[in-house]
Write a protein that binds this DNA or RNA. Structure first.
Length: 267
DNA sequence: CAATGATCCTGTCCGC
DNA sequence: TGCGGACAGGATCATT
């Protein structure tokens, strides 16, 4: 499941592969995967891919002439750079066609991923409200204290809320809470500043470590060259039976998603 | 307003 | 062998 480290890894790969290149067309093979804003210029193509940035789990590619392409991989989306593309691939939902007959495939088994083309000056209308970036200076214990004050929702749910922190997903929230020694069931508003500091520190660490090895490949996630990331080998609790200390883990459901945690290590 | 649940999807895995 | 059902989950929308 692409979270911040995976999205950043894909984005870096995409930037390497197509920065400065001309996009000749974007074809859509599954209804709704490619969405066009209503007021786009004609002709729409060609457009040069000029800039590459990330906000939360959204990739934002700046195109020449004041346009932007927003890409969200959701759960099973993949971008694959292909210098010699042929027929439409299995599960290929869209294709970014480049000059010299090259392409980037958007492959997405479960079809939840989206490509949105819009004017750059209207980007705000096409991105949801997103909270602080967890690897930037604004992500502090004090920020979390203010954002979570009075909230009754479990800390696990709050950390998954992209309006509070943008980029964390199920895997890294489970890992960060384990490392911080905090139970995922704790009420958000009940956490002390010291505990929030541990959450901030461990979230940053786990994200940075995962980013350094190209993300976590549990099932579908791949880099742009279709290679796997390596952080799955370093997970301590996600989809595990026992924690590093040998304690049995509990697997519960929170907000419809699996939580793995150690009742002995996390309080 | 906040919190929860349903929804969108399909490949994989499990039990019978 | 094959089938039905549960499960995986990010974000959005509807409901309580």
């Amino acid at each position: 499941m692409p979270e911040l480290p995976e999205v950043q890894t894909v984005l870096d790969g995409l930037s390497q592969a197509i920065r400065g290149r001309k996009i000749l067309d974007i074809e859509c093979y599954y209804p709704g995967t490619l969405r066009l804003a209503g007021n786009l210029p004609d002709p729409l193509y060609p457009r040069q891919a000029e800039s590459f940035r990330r906000r939360g789990k959204y990739m934002i590619i700046g195109l020449s002439g004041g346009l932007s392409l927003i890409i969200h991989l959701r759960m099973t989306g993949k971008l694959v750079y292909d210098p010699t593309p042929g027929e439409v691939l299995a599960h290929e939902r869209a294709r970014i066609k480049l000059e010299r007959d090259e392409a980037v495939h958007f492959i997405d088994i479960r079809t939840f991923g989206k490509l949105q083309l819009c004017r750059t000056d209207e980007l705000g209308q096409y991105l949801p409200n997103l909270g602080v970036e967890p690897l930037e200076p604004g992500f502090t214990a004090e920020y979390l204290r203010d954002a979570l004050s009075g909230k009754k929702a479990p800390i696990k749910n709050a950390l998954l809320d992209q309006r509070i922190v943008a980029g964390l997903g199920n895997i890294y929230v489970c890992e960060a809470l384990y490392r911080a020694g905090i139970s995922p069931l704790r009420g958000s508003g009940s956490l002390k500043l010291k505990e929030l500091k541990a959450i901030v520190k461990e979230s940053r660490l786990v994200l940075a470590e995962a980013l350094a090895v190209g993300g976590t490949s549990i099932s579908d996630y791949r880099r742009i060259d279709d290679k796997t990331g390596e952080f799955q080998h370093f997970l301590q609790v996600y989809q595990k039976q026992e924690c590093p200390k040998g304690h049995p883990l509990e697997n519960i459901k929170q907000a419809g998603r699996g939580t793995w945690w150690c009742p002995l290590c996390q309080k």
